[in-house]
């Protein structure tokens, strides 16, 4: 058992290393840096820019830069944002918090509604199925966009603008916060709902014809017992994987919603950082979301391992 977990964690670490290498290589290979975007500033001469550049990054080679970045990451120091003139950590922390709040609210809503809808069967199942297929056919960004338009058109709940230019947004009161989060969270839920519905529906359908469930039916166990003790455990595996995936995408799934609704989360910050070539911010942000994705996979593995005694056995 410990062996499997150790292997999993080792794999996760290797993946993490590969991710860091990938991010770093991509951004280093990009033509130009933050300072090339400044060359158009009339007030800055080339020499000033050169000295600024040296000051910002004393290391000459790529490897040195990567190693020094790794070292500071291990110390918990993510470097200094060139565009915002502040430590990356302080820049990211409130943004990450905002994004986590939004995604968690959105995903929780989607899970609750999705599971409830999946339990429906009979006449309304076709309706639910069609609804899921329709939602599934609309790409995430488009769905968020349509939702925003609908909200604007009906003026029922106009999205509350939050100041995105200032990274330090304090969400003053709970009521105001709930008002602000409700629309983007709903938009996220809508995007995530068909995924959950499909998994839950197909899981239950497959579990219905599983030999163990049929066995329980033949033995004449009460319906309740069959559902709770035989069918649900059988249907749980794909949902557990999906749950882990959901945790993993907490930081990255809300990008379009954040941009469209002006939510002061990680997404808009990273976008602007990519355009401004603010390397350290991008790497730190991407790294954080990759870390969460890997952690989500690990959590799913752990849950599966807890759920399925055969997995526990195979590893010991």
């Amino acid at each position: 058992m410990i062996r499997t977990l150790a292997t999993r964690i080792a794999h996760a670490l290797i993946t993490l290393f590969a991710v860091s290498l990938l991010c770093f290589a991509l951004l280093q290979a990009a033509p130009g840096d933050y300072f090339t975007t400044l060359t158009l500033e009339p007030g800055l001469s080339t020499r000033t820019l050169d000295s600024l550049r040296r000051e910002a990054d004393p290391h000459a080679t790529l490897v040195q830069r990567y190693l020094s970045w790794c070292g500071s990451m291990l110390r918990g120091d993510m470097g200094h944002s060139l565009a915002y003139h502040m430590p990356v950590r302080d820049l990211l922390a409130p943004r990450i918090l905002n994004t986590l709040l939004l995604s968690a609210a959105g995903l929780a809503g989607a899970w609750i509604v999705g599971l409830l809808l999946a339990a429906i069967h009979g006449r309304f199942a076709t309706l639910v199925h069609a609804f899921a297929a329709l939602l599934w056919s609309i790409p995430d960004p488009v769905l968020a966009f349509l939702f925003l338009l609908a909200a604007l058109r009906f003026h029922a709940m106009a999205p509350l603008p939050l100041d995105t230019s200032n990274p330090f947004v304090s969400l003053a009161t709970a009521g105001r916060f709930l008002h602000a989060i409700s629309l983007p969270a709903l938009a996220m839920s809508l995007g995530y709902l068909p995924l959950i519905l499909r998994h839950a529906q197909s899981g239950v359908a497959a579990a219905r014809s599983a030999p163990a469930v049929e066995g329980a039916e033949v033995r004449g166990l009460p319906r309740r017992t069959v559902w709770l003790r035989y069918l649900l455990p059988e249907a749980a595996n794909p949902l557990i994987s999906l749950f882990g995936l959901g945790i993993g995408s907490l930081l990255s799934a809300s990008l379009f919603v954040e941009v469209l609704f002006g939510w002061p989360g990680l997404g808009p910050l990273l976008l602007s950082a990519i355009f401004q070539r603010d390397t350290l911010v991008v790497v730190a942000g991407v790294f954080a979301s990759a870390l969460l994705l890997i952690a989500g996979n690990l959590i799913a593995d752990l849950l599966l391992w807890l759920h399925d005694p055969r997995l526990r056995e195979a590893s010991s």
């Binding site: 290797i14 993946t15 991710v19 990938l22 991509l26 990009a30 991407v286 990759a290 890997i294």
Partner: peptide
């Protein structure tokens, strides 16, 4: 497979933007 997992672990849209930004 580790390479594949690393590619999957990076949020696809950021990866898309980053690779796009690599190119002129």
């Amino acid at each position: 497979m580790r390479l594949v997992e690393a590619c999957i672990a990076v949020p696809w849209f950021y990866l898309l933007l980053a690779i796009r930004a690599l190119l002129p």
